[in-house]
Design a protein around this nucleic acid. Sequence first.
DNA 1: ATATATCATTCTCTATATCAGAATATATTG
DNA 2: CAATATATTCTGATATAGAGAATGATATAT
Lengths: 283, 283
Amino acid sequence: MNFVDLQVFKCVVDEGGIIKAARKLHRVPSSVTTRIKQLEISLGVTLFHRDRQRLHLSPTGELLLAYAERLIQLSDEARAVISGGMPRGVLKLGALESTTASRLPRILADFHRRYPEVRLELTTGTNDALVNKVVDRRLDAAFTAEVPAARALEHVAVFPERLIVISHPEHPPIRRARDIEGASLIVFPEGCAYRRVLQRWLGREGLGALRVLELNSYHAIVACVASGTGIALVPESVLDTMPDTHVLRHAIPKAQANITTPLVWRRGEIVPTVLALRALIAS
Amino acid sequence: MNFVDLQVFKCVVDEGGIIKAARKLHRVPSSVTTRIKQLEISLGVTLFHRDRQRLHLSPTGELLLAYAERLIQLSDEARAVISGGMPRGVLKLGALESTTASRLPRILADFHRRYPEVRLELTTGTNDALVNKVVDRRLDAAFTAEVPAARALEHVAVFPERLIVISHPEHPPIRRARDIEGASLIVFPEGCAYRRVLQRWLGREGLGALRVLELNSYHAIVACVASGTGIALVPESVLDTMPDTHVLRHAIPKAQANITTPLVWRRGEIVPTVLALRALIAS
DNA sequence: ATATATCATTCTCTATATCAGAATATATTG
DNA sequence: CAATATATTCTGATATAGAGAATGATATAT
């Protein structure tokens, strides 16, 4: 069993006959016949039932077909990633404001250096907005906050993140949810998964609704926190990109704090540019 | 790029050298070297950095390794599933309404317990409809009423059945065909072999056409018979699955009464799932 | 310091596998 | 009935892969 055999097998099934497959494969029919026979012998099963000079896929053959398709697809992907020529064209990428600020600069610089033929279009947005845009094909892929529940999406874990609470420098230490009672929350608009993390934590410890201020940029949020307007939940990596901010950092329980930023794309529709991005991140 | 190359590649990485890999693969080192070189040439990349007679996996090599492992694992799985014992996949089975009611529940329960990987698709229909579907490959096998005449089908005898005539409880005894003169026949629609048995018997004893009522379910037929609408011919085993039916049973001549339900499939095209079913019934 | 062992590689020969092409057998179609 | 289409078998040419021996370069032990 090798890739050539599997490709020949799949072609015979798709084209519905030895001769048609031979034409498509630029081979002579006898070669295709022998290849199929060899495959049957090596697996010890009958892939096709021969009925009056016609081939009919057997149930076992159907079983193999499913595997053959997966194997061929995977090997094509491997070849594309490893030796695939330079990807080119447009890569429509989405990311959270936080990921954009903390992780992307390095990644995108590397990416552009390695694949200068790719024009990058970066869209920022909340977790939910990004997921929707990927599903709608308005993005090729996105770095989100949560692994999406949708069956239609695939993902790979990329960046481990640690969420922390930040406050005004003179704020007393925050060890539990009730320590922030009375403060205002400064958060991203609805749809941000980090905000849900924060509210879940507060809810779990019995804290109800707080005053909420919605801002659209981490710089604005951090500036407001520093000036004592309220507290906020941010990934530590974002804060590390802002060296001169005078805010106090408070740890929250690990169960809430430790999350992973995934890269998500539509199932089965990974494109060369995204493949290249994924390969670059993996290395 | 083929599976052998990938396995050799993975082995070299795992064992950490050409010679160790060669030992493990029962090959000569030169063979392993050439295999790796070929792989590098065919992919157009360098998989290992050669540093003073030592190999070091390159970043590209690491990329390939990940794919190689998935591909090898998947192909092993395919081989195990396809040439490994347990049948799996879909079994498209046909059966008469009567067989479905009386014999199949036990059989199918056993079958599913023993071969949980097989998804069963059961189709009911008349004898002729089932035979046609098997010939057309829309069924893998079927329990029919008669041994099919078609050369293209094989069969094995499975269940002995005894056909009996049933009537309203107050109906006088039926000993010969003329005893039912004037009654209505309640039968399955055209294509049912049991119906032909009944009409052959009546015809042989010189009885002509009777009024006929066609119904599609044994429950309906038995209910109509019980209420005095007419008489019907049913396998005794079906009646035994309906404990509270008030109908009178009448024997008919053994030549007509004793039949055998066969399992039929296309000649020479018996598949693992049907093989398993046949084996289970035989035991 | 020298000898030995280890390692990857190169080269050549042989066995094997695979392909193309011609011939064959059977079924479908005009 | 001829013509076309289909899968298969057989044979010879070709390419490929593996074995084995030789090479060169490095590390390790005496």
